[in-house]
Design a protein around this nucleic acid. Structure first.
Lengths: 214, 214
DNA sequence: ATGTAAAGTGAGTAATCACTCACTAATTTT
DNA sequence: AAAATTAGTGAGTGATTACTCACTTTACAT
């Protein structure tokens, strides 16, 4: 666990000691990958937008794909780090008496993160279907670690009699489907007159009612 | 409405009078677009897999993008046609006493279609972020037509006292989120030991309970 | 059988692609 | 300040790209 934390820290603060030009390259590449997709973006375009010679890109990244991975891989870890870092785990496990409060805390916790990283997350989602290594990495992290951890959480609240006795995997799917639907609606469809507080309250009320024991 | 139906029929049965080579081209392109994405697939690869000269592709499709659109556009109409064709609308509106039965019928209705068109649907989902015209077309059809129609359906069951008095748009989002999560889990993650009947029963029970009036 | 239109071909084209390399500029180490 | 390491450059590379066109083959109406 110590080693994992260390490796993660490296990746999380990996943009600290970069040159300005290097940061420009990452920013330009992220923008264009998000907009046009990885395959439809040329390295010459990236160089142009970054205000950099094309050779400079390849000084830092062996291939174009290397550039993609150095944008996307750290983000995958960032996405899930709150769920598998031990100090935060303690908080998750013990703080919330009711399942509803736990869900609300999860949403708030990830909302700011989402807003600050919309573009990179867009790239991750868009490119996963085309790059098996990305898919594998995602499944390995989210599937094995986060999924297992949340399964236990569901069972915890089932044992407390707050959630009906349906298979935990189903509970998890319903909850995550509705939450993903919430974020998707908000950030992809961006409807007018959207009241965050009210949406979250109603959503959690719906989930709690649907999952309540008979 | 007559005109719409006619235009739709054209598109729906549009693969009838094609040459064998033309059908090979469409099949090969669909396969490769689904696997590698539109931008990463070359016309020479498509020609090779279709067993056809590269020039043959451009005899039938002015550009590579034209080929994509002729695969994707008819599918968009197929996806939503059951919801906006009038004869089927009658069925939807009157047949089901309970909201649960309506939802179950919707799922069964679209399940076979999904299974028969997984590849093309994959292409649609994958390419929408990169092609604004596709996004617009999708929003125009699904957003304006299907969404409005389902809003009315929700209000219908709310008036019958079967669904709680929460905003119909929220109801619609919860239901569609969970159903999309169901299809997504089944066809993207393809878990082992998946019991369709049980999954659907539990899912509908959860939705009904969560949406029931107080 | 013959004429005509449509289907199919494949070599050719300019443009663009990701990437290299010999070189200079800037930064850090000693 | 000198030496050494790293960052940055941009012209140049062969390969590949989407697409064209003069031509041949096939299908079908007369």
């Amino acid at each position: 666990m110590e080693k994992l934390d260390k490796r993660m820290e490296e990746l999380l603060q990996s943009e600290g000691d970069l040159t300005e030009k290097q940061r420009n390259i990452l920013a330009a590449a992220t923008e264009m990958f998000a907009q046009k997709g990885f395959a439809a973006t040329s390295t010459s375009e990236i160089a142009k937008r970054a205000g950099v010679a094309e050779g400079t890109i390849f000084r830092h990244y062996k291939t174009k794909k290397d550039l993609l991975l150095s944008i996307v891989s750290p983000m995958m870890l960032k996405m899930i780090s709150p769920f598998i870092l031990k100090d935060i785990n303690k908080v998750l496990d013990q703080k919330y008496e009711r399942f509803e409060d736990f869900v609300r805390a999860m949403i708030k916790n990830r909302q700011e993160f989402l807003e600050n990283n919309l573009q990179v997350i867009k790239v991750v989602i868009q490119e996963i279907p085309f790059h098996p290594e990305l898919r594998d990495e995602f499944i390995k992290h989210v599937g094995q670690k986060v999924y297992q951890r949340f399964l236990e959480t569901v069972q915890f609240y089932q044992a407390k009699g707050q959630i009906a006795d349906i298979p935990p995997a189903m509970v998890l799917r319903y909850v995550s489907s509705v939450i993903i639907g919430y974020f998707g609606t908000k950030y992809v469809l961006t409807p007018e007159g959207w009241d965050d507080e009210k949406e979250i309250d109603e959503m959690i009320a719906f989930l709690a009612k649907g999952l309540a024991p008979v």
